[in-house]
Design a protein around this nucleic acid. Structure first.
Length: 273
DNA sequence: CTGTAATCCTGCGAGC
DNA sequence: TGCTCGCAGGATTACA
């Protein structure tokens, strides 16, 4: 579910609720998430540590701790990472509860368990791994390398946008919305895209992501921000989930196809192949 | 290289 | 009302 704008919203919500707080207790559920929460050899004791900072990189969140370690969190499809009063009712599928010294709890909830929470001893190393593994943040995409990457690829634009090593943080919703804004068909091959259109696509991604952050992300079903609030950008969608609805630009019904294994929504008139 | 399908899971809406 | 089916914001892996 959560793509860059949703994760950014969670981080912004959590920052004032988390930084400076100390973890006084931790409850870990028995069910497995995508990655083991604690690896043998990671000598880290969470209890008694305080939160120094919280950062986002792509769709990943990193909670820095006073001991130099960190919590690395990915929301997968249905993850929720919130700070709530300790007395707040316990929701189903809550896999982690961290007590804070101010009467609140940091909770991780994830129905489908496609997400992950990892406690790592070396926070700086974790940050370095993310930087080495992920492409640039949308706002940091440089025109020239982006053009080169797209035009060197035989893959579809949809597959390229979903590739986290090309751009970090774009998922299915914002890939479709960006392609609509750039007037490019999701099945167009990168190598067929003129340089000027690559620039338009880059700008479209940046615009869409920025606007979605302003709207606090999109709630289709499960997503909530760090304080439990839903997003609002789902009301701004031009194509995502709007199959059969008239295109905002030309009134042609929006079409849906599967590209790169994902449902892809586009206007057949505005986004010709 | 690229694409497709399967996999990890639960929940919900559509259709019968 | 109740059932089955397909699909869902992600990421990785195996295979053609």
């Amino acid at each position: 579910m959560p793509e860059l704008p949703e994760v950014e919203t969670v981080v912004r919500d959590l920052r004032p609720l988390l930084v400076g707080r100390t973890v006084t207790a931790a409850t870990v559920g028995g069910l497995k998430l995508r990655k083991p929460w604690w690896k043998a050899g990671e000598k880290t004791h969470l209890i008694g540590q305080s939160v120094v900072a919280i950062h986002r990189r792509g769709k990943h969140m990193r909670v820095e701790l006073t001991g130099g370690g960190c919590l690395l969190v990915h929301l997968g499809m249905t993850g929720q990472f919130t700070v709530v009063p300790k007395a707040a009712p316990a929701a189903t599928h809550t896999h982690f509860v961290f007590d804070l010294n101010d009467g609140h709890q940091l909770r991780y909830r994830d129905a489908r368990r496609f997400g992950s929470v990892e406690l790592l001893a070396d926070g700086a190393a974790a940050a370095a791994v993310l930087n080495a593994t992920l492409g640039p943040e949308p706002e940091d995409i440089d025109a020239e390398p982006f053009r080169a990457t797209v035009r060197a690829s035989k893959r579809t634009l949809k597959a390229i946008l979903l590739d986290q090593t090309v751009v970090a943080g774009v998922g299915n919703i914002y890939a479709d919305e960006s392609l609509f804004r750039a007037k490019l068909h999701p099945e167009t091959r990168g190598e067929k895209v003129p340089a000027a259109a690559c620039d338009q696509l880059r700008i479209a991604i940046q615009d869409v992501i920025a606007k979605a952050i302003e709207g606090r992300g999109s709630t289709i079903r499960d997503y909530v921000g760090g304080s439990g609030l839903k997003g609002g950008y789902q009301h701004e969608f031009a194509v995502y989930g709007l199959t059969g609805e008239p295109c905002l630009r030309c009134a042609t019904p929006i079409n849906m196809v599967r590209v790169a294994g994902r449902s892809s929504h586009y206007c057949p008139t505005c986004q010709p192949k």
